[in-house]
Design a protein around this nucleic acid. Structure first.
Lengths: 106, 106
DNA sequence: ACGGTATTTCCAGAAATACAGAAATAGAAA
DNA sequence: TTTCTATTTCTGTATTTCTGGAAATACCGT
């Protein structure tokens, strides 16, 4: 991951509402959560949620799968892992930190 | 670290210029870098750099130490470690990921 | 095709951000 | 105190972000 992509993803997560959305999706596990359920649990206007979700989808932190009329959203763990990897690398550029084990691919 | 603090820090890092600043400071190691040297290596207007630095200092990702007329900035590894810890916890809330070893405290 | 539910797009306003030139401040040295 | 360097604050402009109501679209069941 390059610096600009990392920054774009950090920016996407760098908003309390969006971080809450992402966290909710992570907690929902691999099966994800529909936009409607997400809205119920976060309690914001549908249009606002849609905007925030788009921001997360654009940077690939969230993926969406259509199931009939409902859209199911799921956290993209791979991208998060890559992002964490990038941050750790940046943080450890000097070799001043111990090697880090990131979460294994599921 | 709570959600709002994490979001504020992610937002601070979520700008290419600021991420570059932070990365430069990390690479400079514990002794840090003066604002002037930082400006030389990033090549932006002094006032712009000052604003970005303030954003990073406010959320504690960067600390500053005065040495005579120059201000030395250094990356705050502890906060970065906490932030990474928060993200890993959020990402692994379901127990779906292996335990993670974050960089040791220097 | 119609009706209903789910979600997005359009629109707008308020607030925040990014940027940089110019002026101001802080500290050291002459 | 004057002067020099380093850095910040002031000022202003352009742009972006956040928010949500209203209207539009998508998909399904009947």
């Amino acid at each position: 991951m390059n610096l600009d992509d990392a920054a774009a993803r950090l920016e996407a997560l760098g908003n309390p509402t969006r971080l809450k959305i992402y966290r909710t999706l992570v907690r929902a596990g691999a099966e994800g959560l529909s936009v409607g359920r997400l809205q119920a649990s976060i309690d914001i206007a549908a249009s606002t949620l849609s905007h925030h979700l788009k921001s997360l989808v654009v940077v690939n932190l969230v993926t969406q799968t259509r199931e009939g009329t409902t859209l199911v959203c799921q956290a993209n763990y791979d991208i998060m892992r890559d992002l964490l990897g990038y941050m750790v690398e940046e943080c450890c550029a000097e070799g001043s930190c111990a090697p880090v084990a990131l979460p294994k691919v599921a």
